[in-house]
């Protein structure tokens, strides 16, 4: 594994972060340092160890099929940077 400028570009794109060209090398270095520290995990024998996603012992609680929410357009749009006639507005999306 080696994180280089291209990796940084690719990851930044996936994460929708605009990382300027001149910072990419530096960030690659930081990520390399952190990741090589994290690679200590490789020392642990995890064969046949079930991954633990949640410590919560109970199973997923189910809720009843009832309409209990909605009809609050004002609340939904209250913080919108741009809105028009009840819609959120964004720069045009090209499909």
């Amino acid at each position: 594994m080696s994180v280089d400028k291209d990796t940084v570009k690719k990851i930044a794109r996936l994460a929708r972060l605009d990382v300027p060209e001149e910072r990419q090398e530096q960030i690659a270095g930081e990520l390399r340092a952190i990741l090589s520290w994290i690679e200590e995990l490789g020392e642990v024998d995890t064969a046949n160890v079930e991954p633990l996603a949640s410590v919560t012992g109970h199973s997923l609680p189910l809720r009843a099929d009832k309409v209990t929410d909605g009809n609050k357009v004002d609340d939904i749009l209250a913080n919108a940077p741009e809105q028009a006639s009840g819609f959120f507005v964004v720069p045009k999306v090209v499909e």
């Binding site: 605009d18 913080n79 940077p81 741009e82 045009k92």
Partner: peptide, 18 residues
Amino acid sequence: VRYGARIEAGHSLDDMYE
């Protein structure tokens, strides 16, 4: 899109996100 700061940049939605 729905709250907080927005920086308008470029032309596309992705430009705005980034």
